[in-house]
Design a protein around this nucleic acid. Structure first.
Lengths: 167, 167
DNA sequence: GAAAACTTTCAGAATATTTTGAAAATTCAA
DNA sequence: TTGAATTTTCAAAATATTCTGAAAGTTTTC
């Protein structure tokens, strides 16, 4: 397998896997491209490499920055904006964890809390309903706490201390 | 807030949240409906309740069963198939964790492994590429192990021993 | 074995998401 | 300032996903 072939395969696969996670395919592919690129790239280079439009590139670069996975770089003597990926994969993974926690777990907790407030468990039916809501709240809270802990931890702690818990 | 209103809100919100997780809205709503239903429901009742077609109901019930989140029930004296949700939310959450691990983490590990095999780190460029691949492999492996252990653990262990780590 | 009751399938329709590309906005150098 | 270079926006087009409903398939009953 040629190096370029392997890289292309990586980028392609990364995009496909992302869709399963509910993440835009192109966003993932741009991320993969920047992860693999030794130097930072500008919009034109990304358009050329992935054969996609300028608008698409712009939008997804913006999203990737909001996820904290890439950085904008202004090179001296260059008008164009250059982008580079966070190359520390553990750091990037923590960032993804943080974002998913904020975007996906927090809304669950908020909604369950609101529902809990609004319903009194005066009737058996209400009590049963509230049990489900409370249980989901507890599970989501557990996931939320765990993700919080893990995303704040260092790689070394995760791979040593944390993993030893399970022994 | 009326109980029925709260239930409807729960079902609606659950569906909306699901789409963010890359999960079909209707599948989630059917799951929510069954979670909240004291008795098991048949296809017609679900069609009526959520105002969706028979084909849609059938397909999503099938998916929910493949996720291990609902069970088919054959009631004596009834021709129709009835469905009930796994009411133990911790059990359901473990099931979701197991499935996501199988569907989303395993493919990453497999792909990274294949790429690692196929590329020799003879050149500096190859070595750099392999570093990214190896790092992703390590992070995915960590997530894979953690999810494996958590999905095998009991609720009591998770909420007591595990949570003590946060102190 | 035939018909009724029910479930499954799947092609086409409806809906939702993503992408394009050109116009508008912004930035920067002179 | 001006205008060239670059980025951003967004309506329309392309694509992808989900849903429908009727036909085909299966199971059960008599």
């Amino acid at each position: 397998m040629e190096l370029q072939e392997a890289k292309d395969r990586f980028i392609h696969t990364w995009g496909t896997l992302a869709t399963q996670w509910g993440i835009n395919r192109t966003m993932s592919q741009i991320h993969a491209l920047l992860l693999l690129s030794p130097k930072s790239l500008n919009a034109d280079e990304i358009m050329e490499e992935l054969q996609i439009s300028r608008g698409n590139v712009n939008m997804n670069l913006r999203d990737l920055m909001s996820w904290g996975l890439i950085y904008k770089q202004l090179l001296p003597g260059e008008r164009k904006e250059y982008f580079q990926a966070e190359k520390d994969i553990w750091k990037a993974a923590r960032q993804i964890g943080r974002e998913r926690r904020r975007r996906e777990l927090s809304p669950i907790l908020e909604t369950m809390e609101e529902i809990k407030k609004g319903v009194s468990d005066s009737s058996p039916e209400s009590a049963e309903f509230l049990k489900v809501v409370n249980d989901i709240y507890a599970v989501a809270g557990f996931a939320d706490n765990t993700l919080d802990l893990v995303t704040k931890a260092e790689e070394s702690w995760l791979t040593s201390t944390f993993m030893k818990m399970f022994k």
